[in-house]
Computed example of a mutant assay.
Amino acid sequence: MDIPPPPPPPPVPALDFLTVISEARRIVNAHSRHFLALSVLFLLPLSFSLTVYPTLLSLTSSAGPNSAAPQSLLSLHHRSDSSNTIAATLAFTAFLSLFSLFAASSITHSTVQGFYGRPVKLLPAIKSIFTSFFPLSVTVLCIQLIQGLILAILGLFVFLVVKLVELIWHRIEYSSPYFVGFVALITLAFVVIVFYLQVEWALVYVLVVAESVWGFYPLKRSTYLVKGMRKVALCLNLFFGFAPGILLCASSMHSNTGWKSWAFVVEIVALSSVLTMFMLLHLAANVVLYMYCKAIHGELAMEIAEEFARDYVSLPFDEGKVPHVVSVAYT
């Protein structure tokens, strides 16, 4: 009696944007309470402040003295308002930077643990902040240094072009459409370059936390790992850039008196919650993208072989669902 041939193996899912999002959701749902706690601690203050800050800024700027007041009092009030606005902006920026680093280190650490099927606990996630804060800070400074250098080069190019035009024509109209278009073109070039670098450096934060590297090295390694997955990284940056941006634009379209209504409070709470969800999913998706990039370059299988030392490893992304099986071939 002939033995029937075995059924064909299930098709391997394509490594695309939807697959990365799906795997990130699996990890988050498998440890929903843990990620909820981290989101409340670090992401919710971020999203709430981003949602409320434009309204508070408009309220403080609109509140001013009577126009019939003496000119000296008006000028003094304007100087005081400008200094208060600068101080508030600096404090707000520092707050965003700190909580962004806290969220990136803790959530990235927990997502890596969840991907490998290790225990995901709150205390180790909090401890990862202390070990990753300095490397993340230095790496962010390196990124800003490169971006500032690019901006300085483009600014120098504009300056040289302006001086060259002045030498030839002895005069330049800064309000002319040609000059405005030229500056807009240079600005667009800077935005495109920065966005391209964001795609190339999509794995930087994950590398700092997962591989304990910092400085310029994570930038170089991220550029290497993201090869072959640039389209996915581009889609992730576009999706998690435009969707929260639309929410923030919606939150800034409030009148100065709208904050007194209950509808405004409900809207702020809803927007903050949705924005928190986007931030959490973005951080988890970056970790999944990092794992897929390592798998493409043949690094993930070796790590699993060294850690578990067996032929087949089950990665329990979610309870009650079919686990993902990684086959390790030894040579």
Rank of each mutant, 00 (worst) to 15 (best):
L281R: 01
V28F: 02
V191H: 04
A301Y: 06
F133H: 11
V208N: 04
Y174M: 15
D311W: 11
G241N: 07
L300E: 11
L44C: 01
P316V: 05
I107L: 15
V191P: 01
V191W: 09
L154T: 07
V232A: 13
C249V: 13
T257W: 02
V208T: 06
Q113C: 08
L167E: 12
F182S: 09
L38G: 02
P124S: 09
K231G: 07
Q144L: 14
L315K: 01
V325W: 14
Y217W: 13
E307Q: 07
Y312Q: 13
S175E: 11
C293G: 01
W214D: 03
Y116N: 11
E173G: 04
L154P: 00
Y178P: 00
F17P: 11
L207Y: 02
A284S: 15
H31I: 12
L219A: 06
S22E: 13
L236S: 05
A250F: 13
A24D: 09
F308P: 05
V269I: 15
S251Q: 11
L141I: 10
I246C: 02
C293I: 08
P54C: 08
A63S: 14
I146Q: 05
N29W: 14
K227G: 07
L36S: 15
V199E: 08
V274M: 11
T55Q: 04
A87H: 13
G245M: 09
D2V: 14
S67F: 08
L15T: 13
Q71W: 04
F190C: 05
L76D: 12
L57P: 00
D2R: 13
A284Q: 05
E200A: 10
P323I: 09
Y53K: 04
G241W: 09
C142T: 05
E306K: 10
Y292R: 01
F159Q: 10
T19K: 04
A68Q: 14
S251I: 03
G215L: 05
F134V: 14
V120Q: 00
G155A: 15
P11K: 08
S212M: 07
D2P: 14
L156T: 12
E306V: 00
C235D: 09
P5W: 05
V206H: 06
G215N: 04
E303M: 10
S105C: 07
S22R: 11
G320P: 00
L164R: 06
I143E: 07
S272D: 13
F35K: 03
V204C: 02
S47D: 06
T60R: 05
I296E: 12
L101P: 02
T276H: 03
F317A: 09
L281A: 00
A63Y: 13
V120H: 02
F92H: 08
